[in-house]
Design a protein around this nucleic acid. Structure first.
Lengths: 343, 343
DNA sequence: CTGTTAGCGCCTTCAA
DNA sequence: TTGAAGGCGCTAACAG
């Protein structure tokens, strides 16, 4: 490692005081152009670069955002989704001269420990919590000490004043369902996850809304609730296909669930979309398996906006806005057979 | 934010000097048990937690590892692979009390800028570079200043003394090919990426090795080189399927390429595995599309070992070991038709 | 406009 | 075994 060059060296070479060098380098308006030039020249000649940790200590801010994902990373609904989310955060952070630290924990317990350590150790200026669950114990922790944080995903209703960014999940399924209904489907099965996830609650609401609007009565037998795994979805959908409840289309609320659904349909010897039309959310494998409709949640935007919002909170520039909804887009597949009433 | 409690407060409450409090808290052996207890008690009562940035400055180390991915994150061979890699790094880092910072850049240019900023700003103690490309300009940067770093992926041959962790890529394809050959296939197409990636070079070597061992002559027409995208793979494989070169099995060297390959086969109206047997690497969609054989690269282990190696380098505990190969595992599908000579 | 002084919070010699 | 003092590198308040 080269001998580190400090601002002292720069000051000496430019023949000014350390504080002057600092002011010059940081663009303080009161520094004369002449000295500024001298300092900048000296810094360049020495290839000076500020010691970021020292700066953090002096300024009282780390310029770092922590990301905490309180569920097992394997359980993340889609790896691609998650990576895009992070990429979005990164870009917003980078643009504002922040860095990103990643804290991977497996459950709420660990999340609390981690949060406490970050908050009290002041190793980040703010926190982004992805995949928040209903267990809000760790939110308490944060609110208690008024540490800036933003959720990606809607918190439970009773959590007021919590900043979050989320898809408009009611719209997500509403749009997809409306589309399927337009194709002629009146009996659309709805594959969703546990109601402890707010996004599942919202998407079910959208599902009902679309039915209602179309004058189709809601049949709770068509709602297939399973956990968010491929295997459980597979079993549940298989059971439904073998049951007496009939449906001509099926809509799954996550990529993982869409995969499980497709598998169940195929193993039953049915064709997609001839025998049954499939809709999904956040399904990125359309190249391998086209489906009639899917919804793009724009994870990049979710991440970008979350980081941006957090940075505003940190700088107290937030206009008391506590929620941002990112509109989702309907992605319509190539071959959309209008339902002919069979099935 | 609560008023931050510093070590001064702890010292005052324990009625000792600051330095004594520090020594006690950091487990220095010369502190008497009595004072240690007093200090620990005081710290607990005040809910003291050290200011990590201040500690970093004083100790001259950040306890943070930077991760740099010098290719577009969309181009990462598999999101799942990448996430598992990160998870492995995280666990190794966490175990050793390090944190992880993620730097996402889109190309080598940006990588260089980012690296310089991290190294000179001393905002990390070491760097892990994933998906290293042949362009080694940024490696120069690092070697020049002797900053600890580790690659995930083999560097070019001429780069000696560079620490890296990688799969044994020769074995990867060797194993898979040997398996396919055992099933009776003598003409196996090999879908691979540009030769500028070391892993492609190595895997081609393994392919040849397996053929050679089985006494099958190498036919370069069976090597389908395309870029690492689904679409290019699709086109290349489609062309091959329509061409006059015949093969009964096909082996693709990444998840993305496996997807493109499968798609091409299906669009041609062929059945997998009845008409053509497919092998892949790092293919995680076997649930949706079973294939005869795939290779698990154990990305978690790759990440874990890379981070561990880096930490050892940082602490000068490395026994001059510069390379770690992680053995891959063959994953054999359920239905493995022994090739009957047709096709 | 520039330089002096005083921290940021912690750790580490070095005396006592 | 403890404590006083100095320093990590940078920034900010205040004189001048």
């Amino acid at each position: 490692m080269d001998l580190p060059v400090t601002i002292k060296d720069v000051a000496r070479r430019a023949k000014v005081a350390v504080s002057t060098a600092s002011s010059a380098l940081n663009g303080k308006p009161y520094v004369s152009e002449k000295t500024r030039l001298k300092v900048i020249k000296a810094a360049a000649e020495l290839d000076y670069y500020p010691h970021l940790v020292a700066r953090s200590l002096a300024r009282g801010q780390t310029k770092d955002l922590g990301i905490i994902n309180p569920i097992p990373i394997e359980a993340v609904f889609s790896s691609k989704f998650f990576l895009q989310l992070i990429k979005g955060m990164h870009d917003a952070a980078f643009k504002n001269s922040y860095t990103l630290s990643l804290y991977i924990v497996n459950n709420e317990e660990e999340a609390i420990t981690q949060i406490r350590s970050i908050v009290k150790g002041r190793s980040a200026d703010g926190l982004i919590i992805t995949n928040p669950t209903i267990k809000t114990s760790y939110l308490m922790e944060l609110k208690k000490c008024s540490f800036p944080f933003v959720l990606v995903g809607r918190p439970p209703e009773d959590e007021r004043e919590i900043c979050y960014v989320d898809s408009d999940n009611v719209m997500v399924s509403y749009m997809a369902l409306r589309y399927l209904i337009k194709l002629g489907h009146t009996r659309v099965a709805f594959v969703t996850g546990p109601n402890k996830f707010t996004f599942c609650i919202d998407r079910l609401r959208g599902y009902k809304l679309a039915l209602e609007e179309a004058g189709i009565s809601y049949d709770e037998n068509l709602v297939l609730e399973c956990d968010l795994s491929e295997i459980d979805t597979y079993c549940t959908v298989s059971r439904a296909l073998n049951g007496k409840i009939k449906f001509s289309a099926i809509f799954a609320t996550s990529e993982i669930q869409t995969i499980g659904t497709i598998k169940a349909i195929k193993d039953k010897g049915l064709d997609i979309p001839a025998d049954i039309v499939v809709g999904g959310v956040d399904f990125s494998l359309t190249y391998l398996q086209p489906i009639t409709v899917t919804v793009d949640l724009h994870p990049y935007d979710l991440g970008y906006l979350a980081a941006e919002m957090l940075i505003k909170n940190i700088n107290n520039e937030n206009s008391r806005k506590t929620k941002i909804l990112v509109p989702a887009d309907l992605i319509v597949g190539d071959s959309i057979p209008v339902y002919n009433g069979k099935n």
